[in-house]
């Protein structure tokens, strides 16, 4: 009987509370507060006593931020911001728990891996390396898209001779590890009289592999355009070339963009393999700095250079995908 009362009262509370608009509900405020206290503690010395003034100031900031968000944001944006703030707080809490209780000597970690005092001249090396990485990436990306698109179109023609060669190319270079083909191109091809600079050897290996992947991507994209589209175009009197250009490819591109973007991002990442053939790209330069500075810091920080380059790239492709998909939504 009392159990039923309890259940009924919880139900009653849910009915009156849980379906209220966001501004009449405060439980999320408490969730967020807990998270922000954790963030506040994060900035306090790990082994000392928490400083009450510091915690209070963070709480004050939090409340001020809440008030500002209430004024500035629209009702549609508020719950989104709230969800993000809450989840960030929870993540921060976990990080803090690890930081505080894992027993790691963070001062030693910082000295070894994040020793910014020994970074003189390394940033310049990063910049040079990043430039080379981007050069390889852009040249290889443009070439592999050109070849991938051409091969993809050729594969849809159904010519048996072409299919044999293109199929071989796809099979071999999807199976071969990039590092193997790169080393072979750079170190073995000179013996048969083909001498490539390290830069072009890296580009060639990347193009061979990525054009193989992209051949399949473009072929799948082209083949996914319904037959009726081709028939309608041909019935209008468009030739095969015009049909491909104006009807099939625009529709195929939309389908192809997510896997293609994926492939291009991994192409940029794969430029790091060029380290083995001494192309002065980002990773090579970071390694060089490691021996120069006798500290692993340059290598660790090069990670952030990669992240700072690639994360915007990924978001750019996602944005592009959404924009190109505009005609496909009501």
């Amino acid at each position: 009987m009392r159990m039923n009362d309890l259940r009924a009262s919880i139900h009653d509370w849910r009915k009156r509370w849980a379906y209220q608009p966001w501004f009449r509900r405060y439980e999320w405020l408490i969730i967020g507060l807990v998270g922000w206290i954790a963030v506040a503690l994060l900035f306090l010395p790990p082994f000392g006593r928490p400083e009450p003034l510091g915690a209070l100031s963070v709480i004050a900031w939090y409340l001020a931020g809440f008030a500002m968000a209430g004024v500035l944001l629209s009702d549609r944006e508020k719950p989104i911001l709230l969800k993000r703030a809450t989840s960030l707080s929870v993540i921060a809490l976990f990080f803090w728990l690890f930081y505080r209780y894992s027993g790691t000597r963070w001062d030693r970690v910082q000295e070894q891996f994040f020793n910014l005092s020994s970074m003189d001249g390394v940033w310049e090396l990063y910049a040079q390396g990043l430039l080379v990485t981007l050069q390889i990436s852009i040249v290889a990306a443009v070439l592999s898209i050109l070849f991938g698109l051409t091969f993809g179109i050729l594969r849809t023609l159904g010519n048996p001779v072409l299919d044999l060669f293109l199929g071989l190319h796809v099979d071999i270079f999807r199976a071969l590890p990039l590092i193997v083909s790169m080393v072979i191109i750079f170190y073995a091809l000179p013996f048969v009289g083909i001498r490539l600079s390290a830069f072009w050897a890296a580009v060639l290996a990347l193009v061979l592999m990525n054009s193989a992947y992209q051949t399949e991507i473009f072929r799948a994209g082209i083949e996914s355009v319904p037959r009726g589209q081709i028939e309608a175009a041909r019935a209008l009197g468009l030739g095969p070339g015009a049909t491909m250009r104006h009807v099939i490819l625009p529709q195929a591109f939309k389908i192809v963009i997510p896997p293609l973007a994926n492939n291009l991002v991994s192409l940029v990442k794969d430029t790091a393999v060029a380290y083995v053939i001494t192309v002065p790209e980002l990773l090579t330069n970071a390694q060089q700095a490691v021996t120069w500075k006798r500290s692993p810091t340059p290598l660790v920080l090069s990670m952030f250079v990669y992240l700072a380059t690639l994360i915007p790239l990924i978001h750019l492709t996602r944005h592009l995908e959404r924009r190109l998909g505009a005609w496909n939504t009501r």
């Binding site: 009726g228 309608a232 175009a233 009197g237 009807v247 529709q251 005609w327």
Partner: peptide, 20 residues
Amino acid sequence: VNRIRADIGMVFQDYNLFPH
């Protein structure tokens, strides 16, 4: 064949408009 097709219209069961 393209010149002939230009002179003969064709309308399909499922429209086959170009969605892009």
